[in-house]
Design a protein around this nucleic acid. Structure first.
Length: 437
RNA sequence: GCCGGGGUGGUGUAGCCUGGUUAGCACAGGGGACUGUGGAUCCCCUAGCCCGGGUUCAAAUCCCGGCCCCGGCCCCA
């Protein structure tokens, strides 16, 4: 016989019962916060026309699509994020809905990248989109929500670092740099290299000594607003930049009102990709030794709806990377432990149908009472059945044999103490409930 | 797409450099010793060299290609 082993597809993961229990717990914590903030859950299709994702361009983006032709010859891609789909949905059906539109999603995404630490080809994100408000309150709302989402999972050591694309643009203009994207790309990499290498790469990029000084000054603008903003007001002279700085100042005032300002920092070196963000951008960082950088991020994208053919509509949002968050929570011992085994194991002795049937009836009665119960489908001998229950740490075993049955009773065993009692069959549910507390 | 390190029963591993008995060990799984009482012991069973090609009398072992894993680069919406 030829056995061909089928492997998992590269960059994908099998999620086992323990994994699912953890994920479900984390999803629920996050979902609760999303809901109390008034966001409503949506889900768009797993795949869309490739065109949808190409529209907001970026050659890299297209290269990392999981793209294919379907049988009808359509060019299709698995969604690399939900923002594009949400924008499409909004343009298709919700342009005249009352504003703001507040949506959230918890689902999987696909990107064709080389897998590495904290990066798979299929991954899950929990995110929100807030569409229809250009006010800084909308930015504050989603940033506060992001912070509270992490707090809900028990995480405490993290910061949400806030940057601004307008300021980076103004900065590039100030330096007379035409390739502003190239400059942002370099600035984004600042933490990955030594100061000397960073300076060298800036010079290679063509910056004058004076401009290099300014860049170094800019990336030092990282911290609490009262420490940072005075320096920022000195660095930026244009009206547009000053106006933007005022917004950020207000943003932090609002975050104070939300009660989450201690988790928020200014970091003007944050660029977060280069395609659709237009103003405030932010990313969440949680110190860890797992090699995991950002655990989530987002920002304002005021042009995207227009790009997709809608009337220009401001929007902001964020996404939390579940595959990055869970290992961090786990390494900090913040995840509860989950019991997957049943609470009661019903064992019958012998092969008689009558006994077997009674065991099933007892199991069903327990289940109807909401108790996680199983009976021994393997038909093990009592000794093996107890070993099994012990191994799975099942706290209560109900033993049913002909002798018990003759008296209309069953034996209930407390696996921790080994204590047993003989109980009338109709009293079993009641008795077990009491034992399980 | 590129670079480095890996891939031996379900899991963890020895063996690989230096090719040569039946690929060893531990745990897990199933059964028995023990026909109504667990965490112990003993015995038995199940199950493996990632795939393909090459070199060789002989390949888990050496060579080439592919796939997958771990990590890094690019990129990270």
């Amino acid at each position: 016989m030829v056995k061909e082993r089928i492997e998992r597809v590269k960059g994908t993961r099998d999620l086992l019962p323990e994994d699912m229990a953890k994920r479900r717990w984390v999803f629920e914590r996050i979902r609760e916060v999303f809901e109390v903030y008034g966001f409503k859950e949506i889900l768009t299709p797993t795949f869309e026309y490739t065109k949808l994702f190409q529209l907001r361009s970026g050659e890299e983006v297209v290269k990392q699509l999981y793209a294919f032709k379907d049988k009808g010859g359509r060019d299709i891609s698995l969604r690399p994020d939900l923002t594009s789909s949400v924008a499409r949905l909004f343009v298709n059906k919700f342009q005249n809905a009352p504003k703001p539109v507040k949506w959230y999603y918890i689902t999987n995404m696909f990107r064709y990248e080389e897998p590495q630490s904290g990066r798979l080809r299929e991954f899950w994100q929990a995110g929100v989109e807030l569409i229809g408000s250009a006010n800084i309150e909308a930015d504050a709302e989603v940033i506060a929500l992001m912070i509270e989402s992490y707090l809900a999972t028990g995480l405490r050591e993290f910061t949400v670092n806030i940057g601004d694309r307008v300021l980076l643009d103004e900065f590039a203009k100030m330096l007379g740099v035409e390739d502003d994207i190239g400059l942002m790309r370099l600035i984004d990499k600042k933490d990955k290299m030594s100061r000397e290498d960073f300076i060298a790469s800036l010079k290679d990029f063509g910056l004058s000594d004076d401009a290099v000084e300014k860049v170094l000054f800019l990336i030092e603008l990282k911290g609490k607003p009262d420490e940072i903003l005075p320096g920022a007001y000195e660095l930026f002279k244009s009206d547009k930049a000053k106006e933007e700085l005022k917004k950020i100042e207000e943003l932090f005032e609002l975050l104070k009102a939300y009660g989450v300002e201690k988790y928020a920092l200014i970091d003007f070196g944050i660029a977060r990709g280069f395609d659709y963000y237009t103003s405030i951008v932010f990313e969440a960082i949680a110190p860890n030794d797992l090699g995991i950088g950002s655990i989530g991020g987002g920002g304002r994208y005021d042009n995207l709806i227009g790009v997709f053919g809608g009337k220009p509509t401001p929007a902001t949002g964020f996404a939390i990377g579940i595959e990055r968050l869970i290992p961090i929570l786990e390494s900090k011992g913040l995840l509860p432990s989950f019991r997957l085994s049943p609470d009661v194991f019903v064992v019958y002795i012998g092969k008689e149908l009558e006994v077997k049937a009674k065991a099933i009836e007892i199991t069903q009665a327990l289940r109807k009472a909401g108790i996680k119960a199983e009976y021994d489908l393997q038909g093990r001998k009592l000794r093996k059945a107890l070993e099994y229950a012990d191994k799975l740490e099942i706290p209560v075993v109900v033993i049913l044999g002909k002798r018990d049955l003759a008296e209309g009773k069953a034996t209930i065993r407390d696996m921790a103490t080994g204590e047993q009692k003989s109980v009338a069959i109709e009293k079993i549910v009641e008795e077990v409930k009491e034992m399980l507390g």
